[in-house]
């Protein structure tokens, strides 16, 4: 059993979308969502699909990777389509009738509309994580949350926790794999038996993982304290990021297009 160390969806290519500030892309995702929920016809969906297509082309992300998320939703989307289109013993005339089952024409059209809407939402929003590294996203999230500090929300500490998490995912994954390999060498089997037997096989893996977690947290807290970490306001960054004129232009123009499409179509 191997623990995959690679995580996240980021596609490392050089593109105009990749170089946009994380905060700009978060804003665009928010407006995109509003736009998608405002459209109420197929022309609107077509316009939104055009916007997603343009963003995808500029992002240089392969279409195959952008559509990867849809595969996991096949069951959910099929259920949506069937629930809209299929009727049991319909009283009115339907498109096709097989025994007591009838396929309703209008229901089928509605089903296709909602399925296309979900696909556009998933592909459009995943462009954020496909073109932004988790570290950039965390940084953007901290800047989005910063106004909440006025309400005593610990935005700086939240960002620090996420930064620690991202920093230690590869280390923890390697440690987990090392313990799993060591236990396998001692004869442990993680792929045999039912749920209870397999779960019990993980006990010798989990105990050292958790003991190390709390020990590492103690060391980390000591190291942070020794470096005078106090969290909260006044903390500076080594590589601060800002929204440029280009970011504002993209955000304003794309938002205007999405809102107009949403309101008119």
């Amino acid at each position: 059993m191997r623990v995959p160390v690679a995580f996240g969806q980021y596609v490392p290519v050089s593109s105009p979308v990749h170089t946009l500030d994380a905060k700009t892309k978060m804003g665009l995702v928010a407006v995109f969502t509003v736009g998608v929920f405002l459209v109420d016809g197929f022309w609107g969906l077509l316009a939104i699909a055009g916007c997603v297509g343009v963003a995808l082309a500029f992002s240089m992300v392969p279409v195959r990777i952008a559509l990867r998320g849809i595969r996991a939703l096949t069951l959910l989307l099929s259920f949506t389509l069937v629930a809209h289109a299929v009727r049991w013993n319909p009283a009115t005339v339907t498109l096709v009738r097989i025994g007591p089952l009838g396929i309703d024409g209008q229901g089928l059209v509605d089903g296709i509309f909602f399925v296309v809407r979900v696909i556009l939402l998933v592909v459009g929003t995943s462009l954020l994580t496909l073109t932004t590294t988790p570290v950039q996203l965390t940084d953007g999230l901290e800047r989005v949350m910063r106004p909440l500090e006025a309400l005593r929300f610990p935005a700086g500490e939240v960002a620090m926790m996420l930064t620690i998490a991202l920093r230690f995912i590869p280390t923890t994954a390697q440690e987990a794999e090392k313990i799993i390999v060591a236990q396998t060498a001692r004869g442990a089997r993680f792929d045999e038996g039912g749920l209870i037997r397999r779960t019990r096989a993980f006990v010798p893996v989990m105990v050292p993982l958790f003991v190390n977690l709390f020990r590492r947290a103690e060391d980390l807290a000591l190291a942070m304290e020794s470096r005078c970490y106090r969290g909260g306001p006044g903390r500076t960054r080594l590589n601060p990021s800002h929204m440029t004129v280009r970011d504002w232009l993209v955000l304003l123009c794309a938002s205007a297009v999405l809102i107009v499409v949403g309101l008119l179509l």
């Binding site: 500490e157 996420l162 998490a165 920093r167 230690f168 995912i169 993982l209 947290a217 942070m224």
Partner: peptide, 15 residues
């Protein structure tokens, strides 16, 4: 500060 470190590492282990 230790709670902050523990939460960060807990999130990493969950991931």
């Amino acid at each position: 500060i230790r709670i902050v470190a523990e939460i960060g590492l807990t999130v990493a282990l969950s991931a």
